[in-house]
Write a protein that binds this DNA or RNA. Structure first.
Length: 552
RNA sequence: GCGCCCAUAGCUCAAUUGGAUAGAGCGUUUGACUACGAAUCAAAAGGCUAGAGGUUCAACUCCUCUUGGGCGCGCCA
């Protein structure tokens, strides 16, 4: 958190400067890592922003601020200078870097956590694919992004619960049950036509086969329950192989079918509540949600004129239950094809007395599948889908997750199956994992030496003063910034970029600086640096759900 | 027709959310293993950030329009 320290120290300096100029308002300056060609650790745009307010040349303002910095922050800033239109470039003292490295060595995989965040209870809902078939590759992207966001938020100290919402009632389930039943009968020798609008996949036949193997009379089989159970097991297994586990599986049945002693479901009660409150109304024999009151384009039907509820009614009750269970922050990760749904759900949480900021909806663009440049059609109904499992089996869990997390959620992702296979040997994930393997070898070798010092307090960190060593420590500390950025943007892809850059800096250090030199003191210090690299690489890959093998 | 997302190197994508000379990987070309792992490193080539205006000291980033793609717009889920 070096950058944070610099930022805090600078705000003090700048407040002082503004006061001396008689300015009462504050400026929203930034501290950033300058481009590679600039020789400085950090840069701030403060002078340019202040110059505008006090109407002085920014370079003069910068000069005056630098004077205060050198007087006030001698323990933090080694030197500073003016560049370009009025940037202030800052070199931090080496001691600051060493102190941060020691913090990493001490806190290990907890580096970057903030205990104060624990009181925020977050419910992260993702995947939530209908249990009508195995997960396909698009669900895989959602699973990778959602799981990684959960890991990042947990690392930051938040209390996070991962939830899968299961649409186990409704029309689709009847079609599913019927699909299995027809296959069942066909297997039993009945000559039946299989309807074109039913689920075509082979897994339907597999379920029917298992039911036959289980014995029992056809009249006694609940095809809906059995099919959901079967498919759910497949989904859970596939997710597990993808290193994704949920804390809770929320069945739609519990709010839409389960009745209390008065014969009412949660959906009944919530709709009545909204009607009473005036956020729902009756028209044309149907019950409408007055979502336009909260910015939706049009009002939506909750209950059809024939008395059946819509899918939305369940979803309204579901979101109410999220808050009722004590969560004060909701995050929904949806495929971009659901974007039309955002306004109405945002409206409904507000009807229940929460602010629209309490619900964060992240949309991820769908994956378009390509094989050798030819688009592959993806539809659960057609049966022509590529399952998550097949891809994971083909390119490995680590490569698959890393690949999905390489891109920002809102960029469309083209997934070429042949390319993915090819990348199993060239994928950047191996570039990052290789760092860990190399470090591990060195540490192992280092343990054979009796002369190295392992006590953090006795190691002379001052010996780490080459550019490559400073760069490496700075990058380790930037783990902290990457966490903050990922939280702010709700996107894990910053971590793949960060880790690749860390790997790059490490490999350069490796070429330039031999760790196990004859100089015991230097070897000891560099071994500590290696230890720090391993901590960050392992923790960072862990946030992506990617493993860190010691050998490759 | 309306709405949301996107357009950056030959390909797939970044760019610390408005900062300095727009960066990686793959692919192409050239070099480096007699010390800790060559799954690596060093170097070259590759760009009018789709186009046109505007705001700003500063625009890939914000605003307007145009073009071209993806998705959505049901008393379906």
């Amino acid at each position: 958190m070096i950058k944070q320290k610099v930022t805090i120290a600078l705000s003090g300096v700048i407040a002082k400067y503004l006061e001396s100029k008689g300015v009462t308002e504050s400026v929203n300056f930034t501290v950033e890592v300058p481009p590679k060609n600039i020789d400085a650790d950090f840069a701030t745009n403060a002078a340019m922003l202040i110059a505008k307010k006090v109407k002085i040349n920014p370079r003069i303002t910068a000069r005056e601020i630098i004077d205060i910095i050198s007087k006030e922050l001698p323990n933090l800033i080694e030197k500073s200078g003016i560049a370009g239109a009025g940037f202030i470039n800052l070199h931090v003292k080496n001691d600051v870097l060493y102190k941060e490295l020691k913090t990493i060595l001490r806190e290990k995989n907890k580096y970057g956590s903030a205990a104060a965040n624990a009181k925020k209870k977050i419910l992260l809902e993702f995947v939530s694919a209908n249990p009508t078939g195995p997960l396909h590759i698009g669900h895989g992207r959602g699973a990778a992004i959602g799981d990684s966001i959960a890991r990042i938020l947990k690392h930051l100290g938040y209390s996070v619960s991962k939830e899968y919402y299961l649409n186990d009632v409704g029309n689709q389930m009847l079609v599913l049950a019927n699909s299995v039943e027809i296959r069942y009968k066909q297997l039993k020798g009945e000559k039946l036509e299989f309807p074109a609008d039913h689920y075509q996949g082979d897994y339907i036949v597999d379920i029917a086969k298992r039911l036959i193997a289980g014995g029992g009379k056809i009249e006694e089989i609940d095809f809906r329950k059995e099919s959901v159970k079967d498919i759910l097991k497949t989904i859970k297994d596939d997710l597990k192989d993808f290193a994704v586990e949920f804390d809770n599986w929320f069945y739609e049945e519990t709010i839409a079918s389960v009745k209390d002693k008065n014969g009412k479901t949660d959906v009944d009660k919530d709709c009545r509540y909204l009607l009473k409150k005036g956020d729902a109304y009756e028209k044309d024999n149907a019950l409408w949600l007055a979502s336009t009151k909260f910015g939706d384009d049009k009002d939506r039907v909750l209950k059809r004129s024939d008395g059946r509820y819509t899918y939305l009614a369940s979803d309204v009750a579901y979101h109410k239950s999220k808050f009722e269970r004590g969560f004060n922050k909701l995050i929904n990760l949806w495929g971009a094809d659901h974007h039309g749904y955002v306004a109405r759900i945002k409206a409904c949480v507000q009807m229940f007395g929460f602010s629209k900021e309490d619900l964060d909806i992240i949309l991820y663009q769908l994956v378009s599948l390509v094989r050798n440049g030819q688009p592959v059609a993806m539809s659960t109904r057609s049966g022509e889908f590529i399952t998550l499992k097949s891809v994971v089996d083909e390119v490995s869990k680590d490569a698959c997750r890393f690949f999905f997390l390489l891109r920002a959620p809102d960029s469309q992702l083209e997934f070429d199956l042949e390319l993915a296979k090819k990348q199993s040997s060239e994928n950047p994930v191996f570039y990052v994992q290789y760092v860990n393997a190399r470090c591990n070898s060195i540490l192992k070798e280092g343990k054979n030496r009796a002369d190295v010092v392992s006590d953090n307090e006795k190691v002379n960190f001052d010996l780490l003063n080459l550019k490559e060593e400073r760069d490496l420590i700075k990058q380790l500390a930037a783990f902290y910034d990457t966490l903050a950025l990922s939280e702010k943007t709700m996107s894990p892809h910053h971590f793949t970029a960060y880790l690749m850059e860390l790997a790059d800096i490490y490999h350069k250090f490796y070429e330039k600086c031999r760790v196990l030199t004859d100089d015991d003191a230097l070897a000891s210090a560099r071994l500590k640096l290696i230890e720090g690299v391993m901590i960050i690489i392992r923790t960072g890959l862990g946030l992506l759900g990617v493993s860190s093998p010691d050998k490759m």
